[in-house]
Design a protein around this nucleic acid. Structure first.
Lengths: 350, 350
DNA sequence: CTGAAAGCGCTTACAG
DNA sequence: CTGAAAGCGCTTACAG
């Protein structure tokens, strides 16, 4: 293949530059720049000539080039590091931030970390090498101290969903402990005393907080503390289904389940259905999900509001971008209890 | 507030540049550049000195600056224009493209269009002004001709989910017509002759194709053509619920429903449950969804594979980035019929 | 109201 | 093996 016909080595067909526009309009590039940036103090006739040249040449300013030279260096891009762009919680966060970012003409680069610390760092570095103005991060891993370098370089930083470690920065998250407490209280109010805890990976701070809430509620209501009823490290639907089946088939099964996360709730439901116990064993899940209202029984949940978390985080980030350098703020959003049926099933005779 | 303490006007604390690294290592910036880019032909001692300086200064190359000067102008960023980053179909596409992009160290900027043509153009322009290397677009609106300028400027372009209009380019999508045909055949095979069509906005090409599939299947099986049973322009769950209720309460209700999209299926289920008809009226939905397997009855669907669409689109894009300039290719992926119960309910006596 | 010169952080195209 | 000069597309800091 000749050098000429190979699109890889062939130079791209030129896009019009300030120079080209200037030449066509018969002015200097500085004048074109003024028009492009809407600065005033340009003679109307020149504005007209430039505008026409821009249209004729289909000129697109190169935002990266201008950011490189501009005093504030802003790229108008923010980076989001999320657990998994395909999961509803992450994507609701992303979408909420997108909507907020739109008003400011900010673009979003985003990536998934899948609970992998290494990946978190890789993504942040990639974003940093593109000089994003700000970062919104759902942290994984035990130490976010490496992000101090970014902050010192002028990158704004807001965490979501989970508290960061090793760095003080803004964070917006749900009241995980309070929500879990409420769930257990809710079940206890229906008379349950044997309430199982079905939890996500213990290394996840959110999971820890939810377990703490469970624990406190058990103490508060003097429920028996039965470690056999505490299952941790469930990270997939299938994990949760298997664990729930095992639990319910054991010699001393719980009369109610608290599922500390979306996928775990779904897995628990699958297990209950398989054993025909969905109308016998009570269930409250942490996190709402689309079909909760159409299942039988309808599923009671402790709902977070990921859209709100995203919106609040975005607003927080924008304040920082606007120069707010007050002390880091932690915003804890209350959860909402939504009783739909499954959480109000009374204890079965044993 | 003094000029100095105002973070907006205050210059950002300097990040280390090639110059700084060169000064510390006692070499020219060209030598640092060689080390950073892994070019060989640098004396080992200098490589060591440079490497040490890079570490000490926590140097991060400015990828945008290098792209500006580099011959191929590649930014290593691709843009995705999707319907709604928060909906499962879009987010599955995004995630699949992300996974493919990771292998090539490409970053993704993404945005939602919400069925708004204006927004599609705005997003594309914003991406273009950042000089993305490629675009993956789920097109809305009637004309994608404006994208020719991007292609001529060297931007690779692949459409997903919907065929573009006004431009010839690669496209990866499901066999919408075939899938819809199969759905109706499936219901007809159980003896249904009065099958309602519940469809999304008619302006959406995908919806048109699904209606065409429905139509062909009706002809093929000589089913009565009853316009009263064709409901279009359902775009939300609530729309679909209301329309389905109306239909089932009419004088001559259908014995089976074909819901041409996710949210419509969910709305139809809500209506069936409300009327107590979920075990009486058959239902097949286009698009699978997470809980389909846990509802009662379990929901039969025609499944697309958004992950596969995303992966194939990404691979197609990468081939173009690698210089493939063969004729535009259209990839149509087959759908899968998943019978779970709701689609196998026989016609009720009328 | 306008523009020529310098420079953002980097790579290219050379020369040695 | 190494580096000085020019330049990517733009804005800054001036001068007129």
């Amino acid at each position: 293949m000749s050098q000429h016909s190979d699109p890889v080595t062939m130079p791209y067909r030129q896009r019009a530059t300030l120079r080209d526009v200037a030449a066509m309009a018969g002015v200097s590039i500085k004048t074109v720049s003024r028009v492009v940036n809407g600065e005033n103090g340009v003679a109307p006739a020149k504005v007209a000539a430039v505008t026409r040249a821009i249209r004729q040449l289909d000129y697109r300013p190169n935002v990266s080039a201008s950011a490189l030279r501009r005093a504030n260096r802003r790229t108008a891009v923010i980076g989001m590091v999320l657990e998994d762009l395909a999961n509803p919680f992450s994507s609701a966060l992303l979408r909420a931030v997108e909507d907020a970012a739109n008003e400011r003409q900010l673009l979003i680069v985003a990536g998934s970390v899948d609970e992998d610390q290494e990946r978190e760092r890789t993504l942040v570095r990639a974003f940093s090498e593109r000089r994003v103005d700000g970062l919104i991060i759902a942290p994984v891993g035990e130490d976010q101290g490496y992000l101090r370098a970014e902050v010192e370089a002028g990158t704004s930083l807001v965490f979501v969903d989970r508290l960061p470690q090793g760095i003080r920065a803004d964070c917006v998250l749900s009241d995980n402990e309070g929500g879990a407490r409420t769930a257990v209280h809710h079940l206890a109010d229906s008379g349950h005393r044997h309430i199982a805890y079905l939890g996500d990976l213990r290394i996840i701070p959110t999971a820890q907080q939810r377990f703490a809430g469970y624990q406190h509620a058990c103490l508060e209501r003097s429920l028996p503390w039965t470690p056999a009823n505490h299952v941790h490290d469930l990270h997939t639907v299938d994990d949760a289904t298997a664990a729930t089946e095992r639990l319910l088939r054991s010699g001393d099964p719980p009369t109610a389940l608290f599922a500390s996360q979306n996928l775990v709730t779904i897995g628990a439901i699958a297990a209950l259905q398989r054993l025909g116990l969905e109308d016998t064993v009570a269930l409250v899940g942490f996190d709402d999900f689309p079909m909760a209202d159409l299942l039988k029984p309808r599923v009671s949940v402790i709902a977070q509001d990921p859209s709100r978390i995203g919106r609040v985080a975005a607003e927080q980030l924008f304040q920082r971008l606007d120069g707010d350098d007050s002390a880091p703020r932690r915003t804890v959003l209350a959860t909402t209890t939504i009783p739909r049926g499954s959480g109000e099933i009374p204890p079965a005779r044993r």
